[in-house]
């Protein structure tokens, strides 16, 4: 492991990472992959996020959909846990709430595969420091 010793090191590593990472989603970049983040804070996990994540990984692989599934912290929507963010290639990320395995299945089949709109999308309701 290279130790970070200077600001330049940090910048270099950041750029290296930048080439691997898609900043918007914070995920490993792969142009054709669907990127899914599962809100895995304590409340998400308590509402079943872990099962949903396991299901997504397994189902996407089985159904031959190129996807990167990763965990993230609490997205803040406690009323709609578990929450997942789905970003299809070239599209804006969409956050779904109340995602159980049935709904996750629906998201794969309808939204990811067919691009159909689904109920239960949580609109972005905040600004970030970067915009």
């Amino acid at each position: 492991m290279t130790k970070i010793k200077t600001l330049a090191d940090l910048e270099r590593i950041k750029n290296e990472l930048r080439s691997e990472l898609d900043l918007e989603s914070g995920l490993l970049n792969s142009e054709n992959a669907v990127k899914i983040k599962v809100g895995m804070g304590t409340s998400g996990i308590a509402s079943g996020a872990k099962d949903v994540m396991d299901f997504l990984i397994e189902a996407l692989e089985k159904r031959n959909i190129e996807a990167i599934v990763s965990q993230t912290g609490d997205m803040g929507y406690s009323y709609a846990e578990p929450t997942i963010e789905v970003q299809k290639p070239g599209k804006d990320p969409v956050v779904f709430g109340d995602v159980d395995i049935k709904k996750a299945d629906l998201i794969i089949e309808k939204y990811i595969k067919l691009g159909e709109e689904l109920q239960g999308v949580i609109p972005v309701n905040y600004q970030t420091i970067d915009n």
Binding site: K37, T72, G73, D74, G76, T83, N125, Y126, Q127, I129
Partner: peptide, 13 residues
């Protein structure tokens, strides 16, 4: 909402 303290929450792994 403006997310400063929660800047990375729900965004990064």
């Amino acid at each position: 909402q403006i997310r400063i303290a929660l800047n990375n929450c729900g965004v990064i792994d």
